[in-house]
């Protein structure tokens, strides 16, 4: 989880990721941030994020992203 928070800090340091739960719906992260985010997550955790995981629910909070990472790791 700390590694994920580091990635997020790098993308936009002004967001409080511990509490934010509307990163997508609140338009805090834009499309270009998502691309960097997905690439960084895939690299850091050595997983492949297939397009079916790319839905707003999985990216609205750091917790949801972490949950997605764990699910993909379990599947692989």
């Amino acid at each position: 989880m700390d590694e994920l928070l580091e990635i997020l800090e790098e993308i936009d340091p002004d967001i409080d990721y511990e509490t934010a739960d509307n990163l997508i719906d609140g338009k805090l992260l834009d499309s270009f941030s998502i691309v960097s985010l997905v690439a960084e997550i895939a690299n850091t955790f050595d997983i492949e994020i297939s397009p079916k995981y790319l839905v707003p629910e999985n990216f609205n909070s750091a917790a949801a992203m972490w949950d997605m990472v764990c699910r993909i790791q379990d599947e692989e």
């Binding site: 297939s50 397009p51 079916k52």
Partner: peptide, 14 residues
Amino acid sequence: SALSLVTQLNTFAE
């Protein structure tokens, strides 16, 4: 940049 994000996220697999 807009075209790239489509392929960067591997959209065409879906």
